[in-house]
Computed example of a mutant assay.
Amino acid sequence: MSKLIFGLALLYMMTDKKKSVSSVCYLDEAASIDEINQKNLIKAASDFGYNILFASPTPLTTVRYCIRIEKQNGKNIISNKQWIRFEDIDEVDNDK
């Protein structure tokens, strides 16, 4: 977890502050991180201007969206139809 925070901080320090950049940080095996630390990672990534993408084969309690990956004709398919929204972002942001 600390490697991710330091990595985000390093990337943040290397970005040109005159330009608005939005980026995604991918974290594999997110289910191995407890809920409190998942929330802390989401907050830290947001503070540095990143969105964090948790990849996990098991359910997580900190997610706002779930994107299912389906197989069709031997290929992985992802479309907007597979997105499941659990809560609106505005609701979460107002709780801070």
Results as ranks from 00 to 15, higher is better:
Cys25Glu: 14
Asn37Thr: 07
Arg85His: 07
Gln38Gly: 04
Asp93Ser: 04
Ala31Met: 05
Ile84Met: 00
Lys81Cys: 01
Asn51Tyr: 07
Thr15Glu: 13
Gln82Tyr: 03
Lys43Glu: 06
Phe6Trp: 12
Leu11Met: 15
Asn76Trp: 02
Ile67Gln: 06
Phe48Glu: 09
Ile67Glu: 03
Asn80Glu: 09
Asn94Asp: 07
Val63Leu: 13
Leu53Cys: 13
Arg85Ala: 13
Thr61Asp: 14
Asp90Arg: 05
Pro57Glu: 08
Glu35Trp: 00
Ala55Leu: 13
Trp83Phe: 06
Leu27Met: 12
Gln38Trp: 08
Ser22Glu: 02
Ser23Pro: 11
Phe54Tyr: 05
Ile84Thr: 10
Arg68Met: 10
Val63Ile: 14
Phe86Gln: 01
Thr62Lys: 04
Val24Ala: 15
Ser20Lys: 03
Glu91Trp: 13
Val21Trp: 08
Glu29Phe: 03
Asp47Lys: 15
Asn73Leu: 05
Ala31Lys: 10
Phe86Ala: 01
Leu41Arg: 02
Cys66Asn: 13
Glu35Val: 06
Lys71Thr: 15
Ala45Trp: 04
Ser46Asp: 11
Lys18Val: 10
Asn76Ala: 06
Lys81Glu: 02
Thr15Val: 15
Arg68Lys: 15
Lys19Cys: 04
Glu35Ala: 01
Asp93Trp: 03
Gln38Leu: 10
Tyr12Asp: 13
Phe48Ser: 14
Glu29Lys: 05
Glu87Val: 01
Met14Ala: 04
Phe6Thr: 12
Val24Cys: 13
Ala31Asp: 14
Pro57Asp: 02
Ala9Met: 06
Glu87Ser: 03
Asp16His: 14
Ile33Gly: 05
Gln38Val: 07
Lys19Trp: 12
Asp47Gln: 11
Phe6Val: 09
Ile78Tyr: 15
Ile84Gln: 09
Phe86Val: 07
Lys18Cys: 14
Ile42His: 10
Asn51Ala: 14
Leu60Asp: 04
Asn37Gly: 00
Cys66Thr: 15
Leu8Gln: 07
Gln72Leu: 06
Gln38Arg: 07
Leu53Ser: 03
Lys19His: 10
Ala55Ile: 11
Asn80Gln: 03
Met13Cys: 12
Asn94Trp: 04
Ser32Cys: 12
Lys81Thr: 00
Gln82Arg: 01
Arg64Val: 01
Ser2Asn: 11
Asp90His: 07
Lys96Met: 12
Lys75Gly: 02
Pro57Ile: 04
Lys17Ile: 03
Lys18Ser: 14
Ser20Pro: 00
Gln38Ile: 01
Thr15Leu: 12
Tyr12Ala: 14
Asn37Val: 02
Leu10Phe: 09
Ile84Trp: 01
Ile5Asp: 08
Ser46Gln: 03
Lys17Asp: 07
Ala30Trp: 00
Val63Met: 14
Asp47Val: 03
Lys18Tyr: 10
